[in-house]
């Protein structure tokens, strides 16, 4: 059964990367959400998977009695999820703000910041 989790990571990466190749900024960000969840799944499977043994220590004992699930990757994923959520919501808000300001979210339609055009139209001083 362990193979399911890496396969899930592979599927998430595939769809994530496919969406990220789109020129639409929103689709790119959705792809990034899938891609970042693939990373979480990778961490999850890196901690070795066990079925049905939650990491609890019975009362009166100091160590668990049997082999239990590794709790550390779960803690890491929790942290990574929270951080990733913050970053992505910031990115989505920024995309929305950019849409208000520019009127499009298609990268091909952006006036290129890589060119020197910026200072013709008022480079921020």
């Amino acid at each position: 059964m362990e193979i399911v989790i890496p396969l899930l990571a592979a599927v998430l990466t595939t769809f994530g990367v496919y969406l990220m190749m789109n020129t639409n900024m929103v689709k790119f960000l959705f792809g990034l959400i899938l891609f970042s969840n693939a990373a979480n799944v990778i961490i999850f499977s890196a901690g070795r998977l066990t079925v049905g043994h939650p990491p609890f220590i019975p009362k009166g004992h100091e160590v668990p009695l049997t082999d239990v699930a590794n709790a550390l990757p779960q803690a890491l994923i929790l942290t990574a999820l929270v951080i990733g959520f913050g970053l992505l919501s910031f990115a989505l808000v920024l995309a929305y703000r950019a849409y208000q300001e520019i009127g499009t979210l298609d990268i091909d339609d952006f006036e290129c910041t890589d060119l020197d055009k910026t200072d013709e139209t008022g480079d921020p001083l």
């Binding site: 891609f35 970042s36 990373a39 990115a91 995309a95 520019i102 910041t113």
Partner: peptide
């Protein structure tokens, strides 16, 4: 306006780096 252009590009590429670092 131009800051937003630049920031979107900056964010996109740096978020990819973040995910790779995490993996």
């Amino acid at each position: 306006k131009y800051q937003l252009y630049g920031c979107l590009k900056y964010i996109s590429l740096n978020l990819i780096a973040t995910v790779l670092f995490l993996s």
